[in-house]
Amino acid sequence: MDDHATVISMLNHTWFGSDLAPETQERLAKLGVIQDFEADEVILHEGDEANEMGILISGQLALRTLVPERGPVTILSVEPGDIFGWSAVLSATQVQSTVVATEKSKALVIEGTKLRAALKEDHALAASLYPRVLIAVARRLRATRLQLLDLFAR
């Protein structure tokens, strides 16, 4: 079991976790577990059941999608402070992209079933967490729009 104070201290260094109320940070620290990943380690597989959400503490991850005849294409890299596996906040869904550590990384990982149960029962947690997940998703949406514009195309 991770020392909660250490986990909270790590959360405080992320945009996702730094402004959360102390009791919400405490709740997340109890729900999750700090995990270390080696470079090239696959954390989540595209298409698997979405049952883990993580907050990246350090390192860098790549979100990859398999494109037929092109192989895995990196869609986005995840920097410290950002989240991965956000689909886990929704029930009965699939991981949207494969998450791979591109370097040695550390993350607070929360099991999806526990997270969903906690969000259902703890409205304060839900009120804090959902907007942050939405911010993270909106940022990705904005970035994806710009990527779709293919600004540097010839």
């Binding site: 860098q60 092109r70 895995p72 294409v73 986005l76 890299s77 791979v100 970035a143 710009l146 990527q147």
Partner: peptide
């Protein structure tokens, strides 16, 4: 970079990110 294959270990995403 906006897009990359698995051989690219750097950041992927738009420059504003």
């Amino acid at each position: 970079v906006d897009r990359a294959g698995p051989e690219w270990k750097g950041r992927v995403g738009v420059v504003t990110g």
